[in-house]
Design a protein around this nucleic acid. Sequence first.
DNA 1: ATAGCCTCTTGAACGACGTTCAAGAGTGCG
DNA 2: CGCACTCTTGAACGTCGTTCAAGAGGCTAT
Lengths: 197, 197
Amino acid sequence: MSDVTDRRERLREKLVEVAEAAIAEGGLAAVKARPLAEAAGCAVGAIYNVFPDLDGLILAVNVRTLEALDQAMTEVGGRFPDDPERHLQALGAAYLGFAAAQTRRWRALFEHRLPEGYAVPDWYTDRLDTIFRHLRDPFAALFPDRPASERIEMARALFAGAHGIVALGLDGKLGAVDAPVIAARIRFLVRAVLAGA
Amino acid sequence: MSDVTDRRERLREKLVEVAEAAIAEGGLAAVKARPLAEAAGCAVGAIYNVFPDLDGLILAVNVRTLEALDQAMTEVGGRFPDDPERHLQALGAAYLGFAAAQTRRWRALFEHRLPEGYAVPDWYTDRLDTIFRHLRDPFAALFPDRPASERIEMARALFAGAHGIVALGLDGKLGAVDAPVIAARIRFLVRAVLAGA
DNA sequence: ATAGCCTCTTGAACGACGTTCAAGAGTGCG
DNA sequence: CGCACTCTTGAACGTCGTTCAAGAGGCTAT
């Protein structure tokens, strides 16, 4: 029994690893059953013993990406304990840095759509929430007198705004731009939001 | 000759129309050769006489969507000739309104990725630029003393930021929300950016 | 030790997809 | 009326995600 569980767990791990490499190499479109099976050293059917379908596998890869993103944002966390604005600026830069360095993995987070009627698992939304929480403390420090709900809305607006700048910037839609320009836009947005709030 | 051109043009029109309906109904995933051919009353192969592939057809649909979006943003244009901030607020509301009302068509604009090495046509980027230009005049009125390049960057940051709020909001990622909450975030972002700039 | 059971694994098979292309239909011109 | 040429057709091809009958392999009870 534990032997079987081990095999299963190892295969799961291997598949996520291989799928992650495929995404990093060729985006979501590169997640294909037969090549994955070959790279993982199993039969095509074996994938479906471990994941319900390829969407489930992609979800598992994406949650890993979220963990990596969370780590990148955690690393800038302790650096500005008494300067919330610089902290937020650093978070913005970290977000852009991650997206620019791991563009295809990061893009898979938003490009991937669950099929109709596929419920997003809790462990996924929880992860997303964890990412977002990095903004909570700086906003609390900056606006201690405002109600928490208002601060949360401001934080969401800023996060989504920065995300939009990165998304459109890296897409090259709205004119091709390079990372420094995108970084400047984020800095402007953060500063403006804090100054205007 | 003109007869043939007419047939061709009519088929093209019909296909775009049918593909647009398919996207509005079931998103990009619903753009499939055989159903489209059936709905348009032609053979599957006929699609490829008019478009290089389905991506070309989707591009044609998307440029139509951009035209509709442009129209929605143009309509709010003349309403606040002497209040640039309200003009910008109205543009943000119009963008959200369009995206909320035509979610699948709007989403197709960003969800669709050209295959590797497929160049985005000029008539497409031109259209995108036209959309963005709506922000130019209000920013020029608000910050007449700043260099135009700086104003453009501010406008791009605000546009992308608002887009991010709409995108994450309608996705339901980062917590499910309804349109009024998204609208409030955009209002906050616009006000903050203008106040902070 | 071994027989029996049950789960895991396999890869051929299925239907649907985008795209192609040989063959047929249709059109305009001499 | 016949020729040449283009447009149109849908069967066919390769690939996709997914399924499932059949075989392999290990665990338990005797």
